[in-house]
């Protein structure tokens, strides 16, 4: 099969309608995007739909597709916008899914506690304001550097620092009751 293409050539091939090149792009980023979107929208179905929307839009407008800057930044920015639009149009009871759970008829006490802890932190993260949550997710789960986050979201590094601090402060406030319980 064709060898992998470098980014500028990849983009050019996609513009020409090369489906294999497009598939390569998909293979490179779709899983990361999916997981990023999942953190934002907390629904596997929605995460899949939104991931597909992003790629589909690129494919449909491929003839004139010219992302400024690295493709990854373009994709994550698109993902953030798509997710926030989705959340705006779909009210709070959207956060149905809780992350991986250990389940079983006789889950040992500490596992049950862990499940609860996970559910609690998840809810607290979900309650962060949109922009703050996006920054937090990119840092905590995509391991993005502040510089990258700033470039992707087109904000200043100072803002990123501030949003991260805010996230931490709000999470602590949200978790306070639970943390006190375990002390």
């Amino acid at each position: 099969m064709k060898a992998s293409l470098e980014q500028p050539q990849l983009i050019e091939h996609i513009r020409q309608g090369d489906e294999k090149a497009f598939e390569q792009l998909f293979n490179m980023y779709s899983n990361q995007l999916f997981r990023f979107l999942w953190h934002l929208v907390r629904s596997q179905q929605a995460a899949e739909d939104l991931t597909q929307d992003i790629f589909l839009k690129i494919w449909k407008t491929r003839a004139t597709w010219q992302p400024t800057g690295p493709v990854a930044a373009y994709l994550f920015r698109a993902a953030k916008n798509t997710a926030l639009n989705y959340l705006r149009d779909n009210r709070p009871d959207r956060f149905e899914e809780v992350g991986e759970q250990h389940v079983g008829p006789e889950a040992p006490a500490d596992l049950v506690e862990e499940n609860e802890a996970r559910a609690t932190i998840q809810r607290c993260i979900d309650r962060l304001p949109a922009g703050c949550r996006t920054v937090f997710i990119m840092s905590r789960y995509q391991n993005a550097r502040y510089k990258e986050i700033a470039a992707t979201l087109q904000i200043s590094i100072k803002t990123v620092e501030h949003q991260m601090g805010r996230a931490l402060r709000l999470l602590r406030k949200c978790l306070r009751p639970s943390l006190d319980r375990t002390n």
Partner: peptide, 26 residues
Amino acid sequence: QIWDLAGKVKAPDAPKEMWHRLQGKM
């Protein structure tokens, strides 16, 4: 502790058929 706890929230991986389904739409 809070930072570590946040790490316990794990996103699932995308379903393998996602590409095929996208192809269908394309």
